[in-house]
Amino acid sequence: MIKQNLRDLKKEATAHALADAAYELALERGLDGFVVDDIAQRAGYSRRTFANHFSCKEEAVVMATLTFKEKHEPEKLLASIPEGAHPLDTMYHLLKMRLTAELFRKMRTLVAMSKHSPTLEPYILILLRKLQFEAQSILSELSGGRYPEGYAHLLAGATYGVMLPLIDGSLNVLLPGEPAVESAEAMSFEQYLDTAFNHLRKGF
Rank of each mutant, 00 (worst) to 15 (best):
I2W: 12
I2T: 11
L6K: 12
D8H: 11
E12L: 09
T14Y: 05
T14G: 02
A17V: 01
A17Q: 05
A17D: 03
A22N: 01
Y23N: 03
E24N: 07
L25T: 03
L25C: 04
A26M: 04
A26Y: 00
R29M: 01
G30S: 02
L31N: 02
D32L: 11
D32C: 08
F34Y: 07
V35M: 07
V35Y: 12
I39Y: 01
G44R: 06
G44M: 00
Y45L: 08
R47E: 12
R47V: 13
F50E: 01
A51Y: 15
S55Q: 14
S55D: 14
K57I: 03
A60T: 09
A60C: 05
A64F: 00
A64S: 13
A64M: 06
L66R: 13
T67D: 15
K71Y: 11
K71R: 15
H72L: 15
A79S: 14
P82S: 10
E83W: 14
H86Y: 04
P87W: 06
P87Q: 06
Y92N: 03
Y92L: 12
Y92F: 14
K96C: 13
K96S: 14
M97S: 12
T100L: 08
E102S: 09
E102V: 04
R105A: 12
R105K: 11
M107V: 01
L110Y: 05
M113E: 09
K115H: 12
H116S: 13
L120D: 06
P122W: 07
Y123I: 02
L127C: 07
L128T: 10
L128C: 10
R129I: 15
K130M: 13
Q132V: 09
A135R: 05
A135C: 05
Q136H: 11
Q136K: 13
S140H: 08
L142M: 09
G145N: 04
P148A: 10
P148M: 03
E149W: 04
V162K: 11
M163Q: 11
L164D: 02
P165Q: 02
L166S: 04
S170Q: 03
L174E: 14
L174W: 00
L175V: 03
G177Q: 06
S183W: 05
E185T: 00
A186Q: 08
M187A: 06
M187Q: 12
S188N: 03
S188M: 07
F189R: 01
L193Y: 00
F197Q: 02
N198L: 15
L200V: 01
R201H: 07
R201I: 06
